[in-house]
Every structure is written in structure tokens, then in C-alpha cells.
Amino acid sequence: EEERTFTNEEEARKAKKEAEKRGLRVTVTKDGTTWRVRIG
């Protein structure tokens, strides 16, 4: 499991799409101005 943080919503969405392409489970949460993308 890996967690990545982004300040840019577009980049967070891109990371989510890429992980889904690899067949991984992805959770995206917004924490104030930060987007957290949890993969795995």
C-alpha cells in the first residue's frame, strides 16, 4: 500500500486512473487543500 499526496486535483485524478489501469484499488480523499491518493 502506498499513499501519495497532491495539491492539484488533476494530478490526483491522473494518479488514480493510472493505478486503476494496473488493477489496483484506489481511494482518493481530500484533506483541506491536499488530495491523498491511497493505492493498494
Rank of each mutant, 00 (worst) to 15 (best):
F6Y: 11
R13G: 05
A19C: 09
W35N: 10
E1K: 09
N8M: 05
E9Q: 06
E2N: 09
R13P: 01
I39N: 01
E20Y: 03
E3T: 09
A19M: 11
K21R: 11
T34M: 13
R36I: 15
T27W: 08
K16T: 09
T34V: 14
E11I: 02
N8D: 10
V28C: 11
T29H: 08
L24R: 05
T33Q: 13
R4F: 15
G23R: 02
T33K: 12
E11N: 04
G23Y: 03
K14P: 01
K30Q: 12
G23V: 01
R13A: 10
N8R: 06
V28F: 05
E1L: 12
K16E: 14
G32E: 06
G32M: 01
E2V: 12
G32T: 02
E10N: 08
D31M: 06
K21V: 09
K14Q: 12
R25K: 10
V37G: 00
A19V: 03
K30W: 15
E10P: 05
K30D: 04
E10M: 09
E9K: 06
V37P: 06
G32Y: 01
T33F: 12
A15T: 04
V26K: 00
T27R: 07
L24E: 04
A15N: 03
R36Y: 14
A19T: 02
E2Q: 11
R4P: 04
R13L: 15
R38S: 11
T5P: 02
R4D: 04
E9P: 07
K14N: 11
I39T: 05
V26D: 00
T29K: 07
T5H: 07
F6T: 02
E18N: 06
I39A: 03
F6L: 03
K16A: 15
E18R: 04
G23A: 02
I39R: 00
E2L: 13
G23D: 02
A19S: 03
V37Y: 00
G23E: 01
T7C: 13
T33W: 07
T34Q: 12
V28A: 01
R38G: 04
G40L: 14
K17R: 13
R38D: 06
K14T: 10
A12N: 00
T7G: 08
E11K: 03
E9R: 07
R36T: 13
T27M: 06
E20L: 07
E20K: 04
R4Y: 15
A19H: 04
E9D: 03
R22Y: 06
I39Q: 02
T7L: 09
E2D: 09
R22P: 02
E11S: 06
A12Y: 05
L24F: 10
R36M: 08
K21Q: 11
R38H: 11
R22M: 10
A12W: 03
R38I: 15
G32N: 04
G40P: 04
A12L: 04
A12S: 02
E2T: 11
E18K: 04
T5I: 14
R22Q: 09
R38L: 12
E10L: 11
D31E: 11
D31T: 07
L24H: 07
R22E: 05
T29A: 04
K30V: 09
G23F: 03
T33H: 13
L24T: 02
R13S: 09
E2M: 12
N8K: 06
V26P: 01
